[in-house]
Design a protein around this nucleic acid. Structure first.
Lengths: 94, 94
DNA sequence: ATAATATTTAGATATTTATCTAAATAAGGG
DNA sequence: CCCTTATTTAGATAAATATCTAAATATTAT
């Protein structure tokens, strides 16, 4: 609980696009990087922010690191929006 | 469409709390400000960001300015999260 | 072992952001 | 008319952020 890092993570367009990419299937850091015109180091930085926010999970597979969406946290954020819509799904969160 | 400003607006905890306050009922800028320990000028700044993002609507009433939630944009953002969940509600947005 | 590949970490920099105080704008009340 | 109240705008500043290049780490292949 405490959505600060998650909302911050979602505030960058590259990070949101990464999430949409991962919607289809898990990808390695390198595969993700090919979709953008910034350096690999920058993508790595974005991935670490997404990971920190709980929005993605990573798994080391030999030389590669594969990233995938973490739906659990996506659902928690959805819950926050529903409180806004008048439901009192989980009144405690920020 | 283009959610950049909306997601940016949601990335600040004070602004999210303002939205939750407005969930109950519309409030004036001053009433909103009493809930926080920052200056009125700062709250005014946050309100202008929320307005710019489409998340709130304002209406001048004499000496006061009343702010209220704009559910339309809240719903648009919800749509973005649903695309993540595998639906293809509105594939075009970022 | 050495080289090549995949990814992250470190350090630097320019931009953005949240905040403050002080000044400006606007509306009402005596 | 002035004075008070409500709110925003302007200008300044400190902190956060996105990005880069270069270096470090780790794994696989020759």
């Amino acid at each position: 609980m405490g959505f600060q890092r998650t909302f911050k993570a979602l505030s960058d367009p590259i990070r949101r696009e990464i999430l949409q990419l991962l919607r289809i299937s898990p990808l390695t850091a390198g595969e993700i990087a090919t979709h953008f015109s910034v350096s690999n180091a920058t993508i790595s930085h974005h991935l670490s922010i997404l990971k920190d926010a709980g929005l993605v999970l990573d798994e080391k597979q030999g030389k590669y690191i594969t990233y995938e969406l973490n739906m659990t946290v996506v659902d928690e954020i959805l819950g926050w929006f529903y409180t806004l819509k008048g439901g009192d799904f989980n009144e405690k969160n920020n």
